[in-house]
Amino acid sequence: MIRWEGGRDEGTLTATGKDYQPGGRVVDGTVTAEVVEKTSLKGKLGEADFTATYDSLYDNVATLDPLVTGPWLLADNAGTLSLVNVAADGKVTGAAQGVAGGECPLTGEVVPEPGKNYYKLEITFADSAECQLPNQTVEGVAIHQQGIMIAGLLSNDQSRGLFALGTQDFR
């Protein structure tokens, strides 16, 4: 998962940021890319070349409806499984696997970003020795497409990045 800060000057994006890798490693990096609005993004992320194409699904408006139809099973880049529910008001409840075999309770909120096809997400882990981030909050964004949720979250001090992939179709 990558988080960057920067800007766009006409058709060129330049930014610096951090690459949050599995196992907790965080690497500084840069991105430069040529931007063709609503068409493509092509450039370098560190030393790697990349090309991304625009998807008109981004222009859809996210709602909570597809998130509240049942529990979500999520796996993250720390190797942890979580089972969470999203209520009609966007409140999130659930538990992650604990570090010693128990459970780490969690709560939070998911809010559709107005006019966009993604969500803002905030999760707070219980103050428990079972939690990898006890009594800490992570914030980020999530997308939902075809029954799959993808979320990227950062700790408040930005020292930890969590990337999670989930489905409701696990029964």
Score class of each variant (00 low, 15 high):
Met1Gly: 13
Trp4Thr: 15
Glu10Ser: 15
Thr14Met: 08
Thr16Trp: 07
Lys18Asn: 14
Pro22Glu: 06
Glu34Asp: 11
Thr39Tyr: 13
Ser40Tyr: 02
Ser40Ala: 09
Lys42Ile: 15
Ala48Arg: 14
Thr51Val: 15
Ala52Thr: 10
Thr53Asn: 11
Asp55Gly: 02
Ser56Asp: 15
Leu57Gly: 15
Asp59Val: 06
Asp59His: 07
Asp59Tyr: 06
Asp65Gln: 14
Val68Ala: 10
Pro71Tyr: 04
Leu73Arg: 15
Leu74Phe: 12
Asn77Val: 04
Leu81Val: 12
Ser82His: 07
Val84Ile: 14
Asn85Ala: 13
Asn85Tyr: 15
Ala88Ser: 15
Lys91Trp: 08
Val92Gln: 04
Gln97Pro: 08
Gly98Asp: 01
Gly98Arg: 00
Ala100Lys: 12
Ala100Ser: 15
Gly102Glu: 04
Leu106Met: 06
Gly108His: 02
Pro112Ile: 04
Pro112Leu: 05
Gly115His: 01
Lys116Phe: 04
Lys120Cys: 05
Lys120Phe: 10
Thr124Pro: 00
Phe125Tyr: 04
Ala126Trp: 00
Ala126Leu: 00
Ala126Ile: 00
Ser128Asn: 02
Glu130Cys: 01
Gln132Ala: 10
Leu133Gly: 00
Gln136Gly: 02
Val138Lys: 00
Val138Asn: 00
Val138Phe: 00
Met149Ser: 15
Ile150Gly: 05
Ala151Thr: 03
Ser155Trp: 02
Asp157Gln: 06
Ser159Gln: 14
Arg160Val: 14
Leu162Trp: 06
Leu165Trp: 15
Gly166Tyr: 09
Gly166Lys: 07
Thr167Pro: 08
Thr167Trp: 10
Gln168Ile: 05
Asp169Arg: 14
Phe170Trp: 11
